[in-house]
Design a protein around this nucleic acid. Structure first.
Length: 281
DNA sequence: CATGTGCCCTGCATGC
DNA sequence: TGCATGCAGGGCACAT
């Protein structure tokens, strides 16, 4: 579910509440959700929380790392005396008592508080790795869209070799990381480029427009604490506000914000694509 | 190497 | 009500 802005938001929120806490117990309720030996973290203290692509990285005082990928339906919720902080896929588990039937891993700290990893579809994972493991995991991904390492020239070069639709290329983590379905759709609308265009068919000016638009929508997402799509309630400490400014994602038949033409929905690479047939060429 | 498809899982909304 | 289908913010293995 979460894309870069959502994961970044979770990293920032959790940093405030679990940094310097010492792990007391860790329960793995679903084997598939956890790789490695969880007991290696017991007694160790979280000294930092960071993010790369859509992966969260809890750094422990014993130089081990707990990496977390939330995939489509993962959530991380820290609970302490009634207050909840975190985020991820919005479900009733945001407000229901935890653990729930979707809770896969429970982490208790010596200090007050518990961190729940919930994941309805069980696509997500946690894994314990050393620094080499972190490097290996990060090495699978092209630069993050919101960094200087994501260079326009490299982007252009990669796109020039791709005949696949630009929308699909934008979501390819070997080209750029952090852009999922919400922001890929919105970036192309902002750039006024049709998602159907073969990547290699874009002019250099159009590539630049897509590049800048991708960075812009991701930045906006981070600024607003990510998107909480399809939720009927706002939960402090868990939801975000990008959905209030979303351009086309899940807006089939609704008027384009620019020209009022109804937004069209198609399917590309098995995922829904939304775009304005008038504005995006 | 680039591209397309299926698949990992569970739950919800929709339609018959 | 039951049942089938399609869809869900990700990414991998695999075939071609």
């Amino acid at each position: 579910m979460p894309e870069l802005p959502e994961v970044e938001t979770i990293a920032r929120r959790l940093r405030e509440v679990v940094k310097d806490k010492r792990l007391k117990t860790i329960q793995v309720l679903r084997e598939k959700s956890f790789q490695g030996n969880p007991d290696l973290l017991v007694g160790s203290t979280i000294i930092d929380i960071s993010r790369r692509a859509k992966i969260l990285n809890f750094t422990f005082s014993n130089d081990l790392h707990l990496l977390v990928h939330l995939k489509m339906t993962g959530q991380l919720i820290f609970v302490d005396a009634g207050t909840r902080v975190g985020g991820g896929h919005p479900t009733d588990d945001w407000v229901n008592s935890l653990p729930s039937k979707h809770t896969r891993v429970v982490i208790d700290f010596e200090e007050p508080g518990t961190l729940f990893f919930n994941d309805l579809r069980v696509f997500g994972w946690m894994k314990v790795v050393d620094q080499a493991g972190v490097d290996q995991e990060y090495g699978k991904y092209a630069p993050d869209v919101n960094t200087t390492e994501f260079a326009l020239q490299d982007f252009q070069e990669k796109l020039s070799k791709r005949s696949q639709p630009i929308k699909v290329a934008l979501m390819d983590t070997s080209i750029v990381s952090g852009i999922g379905n919400i922001y890929a759709n919105d970036a192309l609308h902002l750039a006024k480029i049709s998602p159907l265009r073969p990547a290699k068919s874009l002019s250099s000016k159009q590539v630049k427009a897509v590049y800048l638009a991708a960075r812009a929508v991701i930045e906006k997402g981070i600024e607003l604490g990510g998107a909480t799509i399809k939720t009927y309630r706002t939960v402090d400490g868990l939801s975000g506000d990008y959905q209030s400014v979303v351009r086309v994602y899940q807006k089939e038949s609704q008027p384009c914000l620019v020209c009022s033409t109804p937004i069209i929905r198609i399917k590309q690479a098995g995922r829904s694509t939304f775009y304005c047939p008038h504005c995006q060429k």
